[in-house]
Design a protein around this nucleic acid. Structure first.
Ligand SMILES: [Mn+2]
Ligand SMILES: [Mn+2]
Ligand SMILES: [Zn+2]
Ligand SMILES: [Zn+2]
Lengths: 135, 135
DNA sequence: CTAATAACAGTAATCGTTACTATTATTCAA
DNA sequence: TTGAATAATAGTAACGATTACTGTTATTAG
């Protein structure tokens, strides 16, 4: 049985009110001013609690802190190795991934989980020879 | 300009002679008996050196230690969240991924890097209702 | 109102990895 | 062959992200 806490509500609000994908540290610093007693342990405990409840999704990025996503609807992500941006994959792009997942399962018998997927590579801005990308 | 070292050779051999995907810790413990003075720093330094040289590939797995792959040929990986096994994706499965990467680029403009890809989900043994999987 | 206990703040500990430093080994040319 | 130049090493300290512990506070149910 879980009990209400103001901190948990603040933490959830910080995520749902945001389109970005914050780290635990970001959430902590974001809420600290309005709640000077807040501690990191509380942030982590609640983020993990909310992930287990399915209200929040956790995204792991190699070499850096986990990111959390307050948008509960199933979608995937793309991370640009160059600029670090994390891009939501919805609509057609998401469908393409689901198609792939089906073909992949039929071919290999491996059931990949599209929900947690974070593809890595270069975003459009960082690819090609647009201004600012001259090596 | 890099110089020869016995340790570097041992570390590379430990990977190329192995079909599995060892962690730095595994490499360390594997070589320690034949080289009691070996230190973790040396293992990490050389693994990273070999990755930069393209002789070894580094695979990051959420929540656990990085794994290293001595098979230099481009292939992808699948990790089962349940049993933890890391499976090589070659041949048809790899082709399927490359096909997807092309369609995905055409659709989104995002250039994903198939080489470092580690898909996650459930392997064949852990899926379905085979013996030992009764919840 | 009170007892039971979930959640808290604060802090210590863990884990994988990197950084530092003094010593050792390799290289290359005198 | 010798020796200076310098990679690479072993050992240890530091690091960042996360979890675990502990005594206190807040929420809930009766
Ligand atoms: Mn998202
Ligand atoms: Mn492999
Ligand atoms: Zn980019
Ligand atoms: Zn499995």
């Amino acid at each position: 049985m879980s009990k209400y806490s103001r901190q948990r509500e603040m933490i959830l609000d910080a995520l749902t009110g945001n389109r970005c994908h914050p780290t635990a540290d970001w959430v902590y610093n974001h809420l600290k001013p309005d709640n000077p007693a807040l501690s990191m342990g509380t942030v982590y405990r609640n983020l993990n609690f909310l992930v287990e409840r399915g209200l929040v999704r956790k995204l792991s990025v190699p070499g850096e802190a986990d990111r959390f996503d307050g948008q509960a609807d199933t979608h995937m992500h793309f991370r640009c190795r160059q600029c670090g941006s994390l891009i939501d994959l919805k609509g057609e792009a998401a469908e393409e991934i689901l198609d792939f997942a089906r073909r992949f399962r039929d071919l290999t018998g491996l059931e990949m989980d599209p929900a947690g997927l974070v593809l890595e590579g270069r975003c459009e801005a960082c690819s090609g020879d647009s201004p600012g990308n001259c090596s």
